[in-house]
Design a protein around this nucleic acid. Structure first.
Lengths: 140, 140
DNA sequence: TTCGATACATACCCAAAGGAGAGTGAAGGT
DNA sequence: ACCTTCACTCTCCTTTGGGTATGTATCGAA
């Protein structure tokens, strides 16, 4: 059975009406945003800036912890492009660059807050589930 | 300058007190959960199951949209291990497998709800920011 | 005169993510 | 005797993520 007969999706649903009043363009846009914004480093940097206010480059790295310089630069640039952070360059030597959340960045931080709290509240339950699942796999 | 002189992190902060009363173990645990749970496919599947209740394998794929069978299987398995979804196998032929959210899965869905709303509310603003950023880069 | 500080850019490399397509197995329809 | 269905699994293969190392500019201090 040739599954990928259509375009690129395995499930050929072209003969069905997907939903109804859902705008596929908006759907795609939101999905794209979710994909970029629900990134590990984005979340971590967001939290660091939310907690400490304005930080300069190396300080962001220190607050986040185990992040390489490359990913720090890359993620900060992406966040700047998306309008989540504001980058302020002071033309001095040695260079001094400040990063702070924009209004939109702060609002995203608030939206993520629920996920953080959820993770803190359920991490032991997740551990338990994983162990139970592993045990099930080992037996059956 | 050899940046990676310490372990694996570029920023050598071993001579500083990191924060204070923050438990590094819990910090790591939560970070791990965030990394796995704040995954694009996890979020998408979670939303599909939240919206439609119980779905079988191919239906989850259809609701999510552009997901390959491989990632669907993988993500569903991970979610099952984490205790977010319950997998029910009906031993019939052809096979019939149902997926539904657990209580914990539903609570995570609630936590993510804020992010979805945020994405829907700010996608146009993000687009504008990206265009402005690109224009700034183009000029110099 | 060389060093160190700061905020990167660039290049090289490896590992993981993820897509495409084929295969599987057993029952029921034609 | 064949085809179809469903929920996968398995094997390639390409793309992306991400770490490491090094370079750069400039100024003041040692």
């Amino acid at each position: 059975m040739a599954q990928g007969s259509a375009a690129h999706n395995i499930f050929d649903w072209t003969d069905r009406i997907p939903e109804g009043p859902l705008d596929p363009v908006l759907q795609a846009l939101v999905r794209d945003i979710i994909g970029k914004v629900a990134d590990k480093w984005t979340m971590l940097i967001l939290e660091a800036l939310e907690e400490h206010g304005t930080l300069r480059f190396t300080d962001v790295g220190r607050k986040v912890g185990d992040i390489s310089q490359k990913m720090l630069t890359k993620t900060l640039r992406q966040m700047e492009a998306d309008g989540l952070v504001e980058r302020t360059v002071h033309p001095v030597i040695p260079p001094h660059v400040d990063y702070q959340l924009t209004e939109m960045g702060r609002s995203l931080g608030g939206a993520f807050c629920g996920v953080w709290l959820w993770a803190e509240a359920h991490h032991d339950q997740i551990e338990a589930s994983r162990k139970a699942f592993a045990a099930r796999q080992a037996e059956g």
